[in-house]
Design a protein around this nucleic acid. Structure first.
Length: 587
RNA sequence: GCCAGGAUAGCUCAGAGGCAGAGCAGCUCACUCGUAAUGAGCAGGUCGUGGGUUCGAUUCCCACUCCUGGCUCCA
């Protein structure tokens, strides 16, 4: 983007910020018309819109929103100026005497400062601004109230629950339209909807919430992902492990999970007077394997990966399809190395991650670096060294990144990678975490050149995150139309009439013999219906076969994009798809 | 967990204090058909679970379970 392009973008962001903030104020005024006794809390602009929290005598209904919108349009069209005033804290306290939430906010403002107010029409809010100059700068046709939600005062569940109204606001009705279309597209791509429509997975409340059942189609995709994952890891210097699903309390006491992670763990099972816990993480198991031998510096680095299934208790309210579950398979790995290897190792992990993301069709990636929090274990010097190597690695890979000061776990700094999907949404997937804690707790050592026992560095790394969550993101990214190498069914052979069933079956067998995932639709539906069915399943290739194709040992491909191709020999088609698979082409 | 909304056929959804509905999917039958739905017929439900009101509840009331949207954006 050019320099002026950048500043234009900033201007626009600033403009939208004011519009949204001001629209929130107009909404508050409108709500006060409906509920004169309403207590108002906060109402900031947010991405794509705004919200305002209210303490109301009764619950809002969708009809209330319509009336509030109506009032808002009136206020906007009446063209009221937004007027700023600066008053003393004393005066502000008097002014908002019947607004307890505002009084609390006033107390939070530095005692030296005066406070500013913004007034439009009958409504005055404690507010830092800025705002548009007048309500006529808002467009009565470019905003919409979207939803009602509960929200704790200050996001604290010990505080009172308020009612939040979310809205969206734009400069023009066209932009609003585009945003609403975008929301509709998000809904259409919802992995839960596509999961059902494409017969990929299910969940069963009666059998346990937050636990995923992979159907044959979903499992086909997962197998493709796992096969790729294993092959890439073996090619990139990893060894693969399998470890148990449960471990005795000794393990979790030693690791510290019982002390620090208890509320996320499933309750123990008692066997032979011992308590066994379903694992919430794989790391202690990998450490057990590490400790089966005296490790030499010559053995390091050790890169050990595992598709490890873990169970974590998540509160029922936060469960969400594949994206937030109670049982999932992490594509985990632990790297054990000497301090002088750490920088190269981190860089290698990053490089490897980016390559994998590219193969799955994601290239917009941002790094988030989380540094030492107030409470932490490990020497400050180790933290510094670790953070330094993280930054060097990020720079070396040329990734854009942001620093989250103090955002690391107590046991070490980390890099998270967020990927952007086809709809521009960011998802946190990859995490690369230092651990100064576990090597200590388990007394891990390696023998260095000088014959002395030293503590290895340990890095946890989940690349895709979890297969469940990754699958959810993958479904939404592709809207269910997976690239050929991942598609559950790569080709459906469609005979134009029953007379060609036998040939269709033969073609299917040939495709399968060539390693492709193929089906022949021999149902008694008509050809058009078969095409439609395959199209709705988002199968990449439909192969139409009739008299001509049978005579020429050929197929006439139709792509799911609707494109029709001339007939080609079966062998030729196979070669083409195999290339497409090996190149992981995004078609 | 908390707030709000929801739960009716496999799916999407309509309905109403008095025999439970549609479309799609499924099953059966017929059909010689060239690039997004051939036609006819059949079957399918303890109306989320438990309790209450009522002559009668899937419908009204209460509780519970689960699902959905939020509970991160800080005047």
């Amino acid at each position: 983007m050019s320099q002026s392009g950048v500043s234009k973008q900033l201007d626009r962001d600033e403009k939208l910020y004011r519009i949204r903030h001001s629209t929130a104020h107009v909404m508050a005024e409108a709500v006060l018309r409906e509920f004169p006794d309403a207590k108002i809390a906060i109402g900031p602009p947010i991405e794509n819109g705004f919200y305002y929290d209210f303490d109301l005598p009764r619950s809002l209904t969708p009809e209330d929103l319509e009336r509030v919108e109506e009032h808002m349009r009136e206020i906007i069209n009446e063209d009221h100026a937004f007027e700023r005033a600066v008053i003393s804290r004393e005066e502000a306290r008097r002014r908002f005497a019947d607004q307890p939430y505002k009084l609390e906010l006033i107390e939070d403002i530095g005692s030296e400062e005066d406070v500013s107010l913004y007034t439009q029409n009958t409504f005055t809010d404690l507010c830092r601004g800025p705002h548009v100059e007048s309500t006529k700068q808002l467009n009565a046709k470019a905003f919409k109230l979207l939803s009602i939600a509960g929200a704790y005062w200050r996001g604290d569940e010990k505080q009172k629950m308020l009612q939040r109204i979310y809205g969206t606001a734009w400069e023009t009705p066209k932009e609003l339209r585009q945003h609403l279309d975008h929301l509709a597209e998000v809904e259409k791509r919802d992995h839960r909807r596509l999961g059902r429509e494409l017969d990929l997975f299910s969940t069963h409340e009666e059998a346990g919430s937050g636990l995923i059942y992979w159907h044959p189609n979903g499992s086909r995709v997962r197998l493709a992902i796992e096969d790729y994952w294993r092959a890439e890891h073996l090619d990139n210097g990893y060894e693969l492990l399998y470890t148990p699903h449960v471990g005795k309390s000794w393990l979790w006491e030693t690791s510290g999970h019982l002390e620090f992670y208890n509320e996320n763990m499933y309750s123990p099972m008692v066997l032979d007077n011992a308590e066994y816990y379903a694992k919430p993480m794989n790391c202690p198991f990998h450490i057990m394997i590490y400790k089966t031998q005296t490790r030499s510096y010559r053995d390091l680095p050790l890169r050990w990966g595992e598709l490890g299934t873990v169970y974590r208790y998540e509160r029922s309210g936060v469960l969400h399809g594949l994206l937030r579950v109670r049982g999932f398979t992490q594509d985990d790995a632990h790297i054990f190395c000497s301090p002088d290897q750490i920088e190269a190792e981190i860089r290698e992990v990053l490089r490897f991650s980016l390559q994998v993301w590219k193969d799955f069709g994601f290239s917009d990636i941002k790094a988030y670096l989380a540094t030492q929090p107030e409470k932490s274990v490990g020497e400050d010097a180790d933290w510094e060294r670790a953070v330094g190597s993280l930054i060097k690695a990020i720079d070396a890979e040329g990734l854009p990144y942001e620093v989250e000061e103090g955002g690391g776990a107590f046991y070490g700094p980390k890099i998270d990678l967020k990927i952007q999907d086809a709809l521009g949404r960011e998802w946190q997937m990859t995490t690369i975490q230092f651990d100064f804690n576990l090597p200590e707790r388990f007394g891990m050592t390696f023998v260095d050149r000088d014959g002395k026992e030293k503590r290895p560095y340990m890095v946890h790394r989940a690349l895709l995150g979890s297969l469940e969550r990754f699958f959810g993101v993958l479904i939404e990214h592709y809207g269910g139309a997976f690239p050929v190498w991942l598609a559950p069914v790569q080709a459906v052979v469609v005979p134009v009439a029953p007379a060609f069933n036998e040939y269709a079956e033969q073609v299917k067998s040939e495709l399968r013999a060539a390693g492709l995932r193929a089906e022949a639709d021999l149902s008694d539906a008509r050809m058009n219906a078969k095409i439609r069915a395959a199209q709705q399943r988002k199968v990449p290739y439909m192969l139409i076969v009739g008299e001509n194709e049978r005579n020429g040992h050929a197929v006439a491909p139709r792509l799911r994009t609707g494109e029709k191709e001339d007939a080609v020999a079966v062998e030729q088609f196979i070669t083409r798809v195999q290339r497409c698979v090996s190149e992981k082409a995004l078609i």
